[in-house]
Every structure is written in structure tokens, then in C-alpha cells.
Design a protein around this nucleic acid. Structure first.
Lengths: 175, 175
DNA sequence: TTGTATGCAAATAATTTGCACCAAA
DNA sequence: TTTGGTGCAAATTATTTGCATACAA
């Protein structure tokens, strides 16, 4: 259906700098595969490269739209894309989360922990980083004797742009 | 498939007291329906009552499992259940979120805002409440000129019980 | 050579929709 | 009486799986 709706705009309003890492995503994948007796195939290589060529959130359909079609040179079938994404998540390359009932992926490897603002008007996802949040999270974990492995926070509301547009429209209505 | 896996255990480890409200969920639904020219039907009445008879997170399958089967007195069809849940969310009675790719519902009306700890071992959801979190959230919103409407935080990790079980097992392994 | 990976087609799973009939207001 | 609601069956959407073949190690 394609309802994720990236609207073509860059998803990350403010780019959080990439964290320096010793291996490229491809190398990391190779290590992961080797350690499990799995194989580095042309498809997996091609997909990691594509997935990490742009820093953006994406869902399966958005990714496949950017890939070669059936018949073209580097075509990768839909099931293989699903299988690969699952592996990339296992390998620590990607993170997955659900938004409006569909799976969305984002870079994990080489990228700092962060959370999201989700605009209910334009559906844009904006990243933000908050150390205080991490501390609060750990604190909450301790209080509950809960071994924290990670978290996922999405703040939803109306983004700056939509707000501005909205106010302007309201002002106009009064004219 | 039924993979939400409530394991029958009470989902809310610590019950957060209900917030006093002037109307019952049923009354609130009636108001909502009336204001939109919609109708209070036997099915909707029956469903609100059932949904609010226990304070627990649930998914559609879990709910339907508790409802009368086809042929029995108050049978409600699956599509109607889906339609009703959507309305209940619109009416502010329920909140919906996604966990492991399936929709989970919880009481909203008459219940304080809270977040969840999700155990990756036993899949138990535990509620917690943190004022500091709400403040931090609002602060982050202000910094981004983002009009906050709400948020959803899930901290995942290993819960106290699983931790204990795990340590015990490890200790035993050493014997 | 020995499995693992892929593509295809088909199967699942969750949810939605079209439609004829039913029933609140 | 009018228009919204329901159940049924079928359609959609997202994702997964069985299997024969292809290919990395």
C-alpha cells in the first residue's frame, strides 16, 4: 500500500553525526555471516551497500522501489529482501520498529542511539538525542530491577513546519 | 497465530490506580456516538463492557477468545470487533500500540498516562509511571518547537523474575 | 562437493471491504 | 422511515514458507 509516506523530504531534520566505527557495514556483515557459517552472496552485498548509501528511515516497499526491477541487473526478490533485512537486524546493522502498523528500518551500526518525533500531520520522523532520557531510562530500570537492553520512544504531535503552516492558515482565515 | 503470548499472567505487575472520572466508559462512548450521529448498538455496548471489565493489555485474538462463539447469545463478528476497537480508540476509551508487529490495546479512559517495560524473555508487559519522563518529553518538544500530543515509550530488557530465574539456573550450572 | 541462498509461487496472518439485510433513532 | 450497523464472504496487505535450482565455501 505504501502509506508510510516519506514525502520525499529528508527524514532526519537534524543529522546526528555518525559514530566512528572500525568496520564498514559490509565488513560487519561478513563477520556476522562467517561466524555463523552463513554466506556472503551477491544479493546481501548489494543490499547492505544500498541500505547504507543513504541515512534514512525506510520500509520494505520504499527499499524495493529503489532496487532494480525484475529482469534488470541486480534484481533481488521480495522474499530475499525480507530475509536480508531480518539478518541485518540480527547482525546489528539495522534496527526495526513499527509505525502505523508497518515495519520501519533505520541504521543502527555506526549510529548513536536516538529517538523520534513523529508528526501526525505530515508524518515526518525527526530524530533527536537526549542523554537525560537514557539516564532516566536506566534509573527506571533500576527501580524495577529490570535489566535494560534498550528502549524505543516516539513522541507524537505536530512538527514545527506544520505548526507554522497551520498558524498561517488560521491567520488567513480571519482576513 | 496468537503470538502475543500473555502467558496468562497478569500483565500489569503493579497496578496504577484508576483516575476518578465522571462518566463510565459506556457513558463516554454514548456521548461520542451521539455527537457524531452514530448509534449505540447491542454489540458496542457489550464490547465496551467486556473490554473494561478487566484491566489488561490485549490484542484482537485475546479479546475474541473471551467473547461468545458463533451461535451463542452475544456473538459479535470479527469485523465488528475490529470496527468497534477503532471507534473506542477514536472515542478516547482505548489506546493502541504495536508490539512485535501486532496491535495491542489498553485502557486509556480513566487511566493515568504510563509507559511499559517489556521483557524479551517472558514477553510480559509491565506498566510504570514517571512524572520525570513527562517533563523531559515536554522539554524535548519545546526544544524542537514540536507540539507534543503524546508519546509511547517501551523499555525492553529482562524483567526481575526472568533475571532471578536466570541467575538461579546459572548458579545451578556451576554445581 | 556440500550445504546454504535464491526466486518463484503459494501459503499465512492480520485486517479491511462490499454488500444484502437488520435495526436504532 | 431513514441511515447507520452487522455478519458473511471475499479482498487486501504484509510477510513467510516450501521447494527446486543456483551458487559460495
Amino acid at each position: 500500500m505504501k502509506s508510510f509516506d516519506s514525502k520525499g523530504k529528508g527524514q532526519a531534520e537534524k543529522s546526528l553525526g555518525a559514530v566512528p566505527v572500525s568496520q564498514t557495514p559490509l565488513q560487519r556483515l561478513e563477520e556476522y555471516l562467517t561466524s555463523r557459517g552463513l554466506r556472503m552472496t551477491e544479493q546481501r552485498r548489494f543490499l547492505v551497500e544500498r541500505v547504507f548509501s543513504r541515512h534514512e528511515h525506510f520500509d520494505v516497499d520504499q527499499l524495493i522501489d529503489q532496487l532494480p526491477r525484475k529482469g534488470e541487473p541486480h534484481y533481488v526478490s521480495r522474499p530475499t529482501v525480507y530475509r536480508a533485512l531480518k539478518e541485518f537486524v540480527d547482525a546489528g546493522l539495522l534496527r526495526r520498529f513499527e509505525l502505523n502498523g508497518r515495519s520501519v528500518y533505520e541504521h543502527d551500526y555506526g549510529y548513536p542511539e536516538h529517538d523520534h518525533l513523529y508528526c501526525i500531520k505530515c508524518r515526518k520522523l525527526t530524530e533527536f538525542q537526549s542523554d537525560a532520557l537514557g539516564q532516566l531510562r536506566d534509573q527506571i530500570g533500576r527501580e524495577h530491577r529490570f535489566l535494560v537492553r534498550g528502549h524505543r520512544l516516539i513522541i507524537h504531535g505536530v512538527c514545527r513546519d506544520c505548526n507554522r503552516r497551520r498558524s498561517r492558515r488560521r491567520a488567513q482565515d480571519l482576513v
